[in-house]
Design a protein around this nucleic acid. Structure first.
Length: 274
DNA sequence: CAAGGACCCTGTTTGC
DNA sequence: TGCAAACAGGGTCCTT
């Protein structure tokens, strides 16, 4: 489940491979990928373009192609792999292939076919992001004033608010649970009940969890792979996520699993305040 | 109108 | 043991 750290890892690996190169050929094997646009139209519009930027916004990858932006969301099981790197990449569920002008082959794999590719010009892109994404949690705009205002006007749980991409772009199930544990806040707490001190702690906790995820090149639970084919290592450092029954490393109480905001949720029932 | 649920998918896990 | 049902979850759309 690629979240901000996983997508940022993908971006950092793809940037040096793609930047400055042209797309010699593009073939898309899954018509779902580009809906509602047809794969043929997207193939034709991508082919021959030069990649002048490789960016990320929330969980979206943005390949800047001059007059158009190729925007990719990996959703649950999407991944890019570059070949020539030993040919060890999986052969199943390849939904698209891109060949660069230097012969590099970029493969797009997506078992569950939830991922999306779209082409937007700069105006469309800005509108697309501004109407659904809040600030980058690692950026300056994500501060106590912003989060405090959002939480104060909410009647849902803090976990649901963290998962809302309009609160902080790029947070998913893993980093929501990990940051709430770091902050010592129970995931089912009403968002509006957090104190100023808790909001400050949560901002720091979220940033730390995301930065740790980036340092560890993301978390590989099942499908996620970096473009060079390697696994992330963040799953080895989870404090609570998927660790039901194991001792909390802060207070030794067993980690509990429950369901919050419709998602599997792991937390320490002893040191995350209800 | 905010909030919760269904849905899209397919491979894996669970439960009878 | 075998097989069907449940589950996983990001984002969108629909309902409450």
């Amino acid at each position: 489940m690629p979240e901000l750290p996983e997508v940022e890892t993908v971006r950092r690996q793809l940037e040096p491979v793609l930047l400055g190169h042209r797309l010699s050929s593009v073939s898309i094997a899954d018509s779902r990928l580009t809906r509602p646009t047809s794969p043929q139209v997207v193939e034709q519009r991508l082919t021959g373009r030069q990649i002048v930027g490789v960016e990320r916004r929330g969980k979206y990858l943005i390949f800047e192609l001059g007059t158009v932006n190729w925007i990719v969301h990996l959703r649950m099981t999407g991944s890019f792999t570059t070949t020539d790197a030993g040919g060890r990449e999986p052969e199943t569920h390849i939904r698209a292939r891109v060949v660069l002008d230097d012969g590099t082959v970029l493969r797009y794999r997506d078992v569950r076919r939830f991922g999306t590719w779209s082409l937007l010009d700069d105006v469309e892109r800005d509108a697309f992001f501004s109407e659904r994404l809040g600030p980058e949690p690692l950026g300056e705009a994500f501060d106590e004033a912003w989060l405090g205002t959002r939480l104060a006007g909410s009647r849902s749980t803090i976990k649901a608010m963290l998962l809302d991409q309009a609160t902080a772009a790029g947070v998913g199930n893993i980093y929501a649970d990990e940051s709430l544990w770091r902050a010592g806040v129970h995931p089912a707490r009403p968002a509006a009940s957090l104190t100023g001190a808790e909001i400050e702690r949560l901002i720091d906790a979220l940033r730390e969890a995301l930065q740790q995820g980036i340092r560890r090149q993301g978390a590989t639970l099942r499908d996620y792979r970096a473009p060079d084919g390697t696994n992330g290592a963040m799953q080895d450092e989870f404090a609570v996520y998927t660790r039901e029954g194991e001792p909390c490393e802060r207070c030794a109480a067993p980690v509990a699993k429950t369901r919050v905001a419709g998602r599997g949720t792991w937390f320490c029932p002893s040191c995350q305040d209800k």
